[in-house]
């Protein structure tokens, strides 16, 4: 019976880190540690000698881990990004999901696969949440702009709110644009006219 794989997760957001830990625990018996602080990241990891390091692709501190690929002494264990011809599909899936994995040289792909599978699933979920949040924010902002444009039309042309919206919608249809874009153009133009 070999010892459990040791995994380090680099993640500054505590809630996200906990979710990743939960996903990994559900996938197997691993020794998991979380590093939140990017300071001396490479040395913190070197000191703990993990088998696998997981980090968000969007994390700018990721470049610090590249140093680990250059084992500088005989005691150091080289860490390579998990790019293996046999596992190309897995690497691509990881990149698409937004996670990068560093795996110690010589590790059997079969031992790492459950870790990566779990991480990929979790990061895909994060990505979906991120997209949803961005969409919600955009929708809210568009509504604000449309409201402002309606207000301007009501004032300038003495129409009701419904009529103002109808004017915007007609202009949008005539120009083959979205109502939000027409509203934005009106607000921008009004700003320029002062």
């Amino acid at each position: 019976m070999s010892r459990p794989l040791s995994i380090i997760i680099v993640e500054p957001d505590r809630d996200r880190a906990l979710l990743i830990v939960d996903s990994l625990r559900a996938a197997g018996d691993f020794d998991i540690q979380v590093i939140a602080e990017p300071t001396s990241l490479a040395r913190q990891i070197q000191a703990r000698q993990p088998d696998v390091v997981l980090i968000d692709i969007e994390n700018p501190s990721r470049d610090m881990l590249e140093e680990l690929a250059l084992a500088s002494g005989p005691q150091d264990r080289a860490v390579a990004m998990f790019v293996d011809r046999s596992a190309e599909g897995l690497s691509t899936a990881a990149i698409e999901a937004g996670v990068s994995a560093y795996v110690v040289d010589g590790m059997q792909p079969g031992r790492v696969k459950p870790v990566l599978d779990a991480a990929i699933t979790r990061f895909r979920m994060f990505q979906r949440m991120r997209t949803e949040l961005a969409e919600t924010k955009r929708a809210l902002e568009e509504r604000k702009v449309i409201d402002r444009a309606k207000g301007m039309l009501m004032k300038a042309r003495g129409v009701s709110e419904d009529e103002a919206y109808a004017i915007l919608r007609k202009a949008a249809m005539d120009q083959g644009k979205r109502v939000a874009d027409v509203a934005q153009a009106l607000v921008t133009a009004a700003g320029l006219l002062g």
């Binding site: 994390n59 990721r62 470049d63 590249e66 990004m81 690497s91 990149i95 698409e96 990068s100």
Partner: peptide, 15 residues
């Protein structure tokens, strides 16, 4: 891109 390593991988994997 957020980092050089990510950009290298984006290129490598055809993103």
């Amino acid at each position: 891109a957020p980092s050089w390593s990510s950009l290298r991988d984006m290129l490598s994997f055809g993103k």
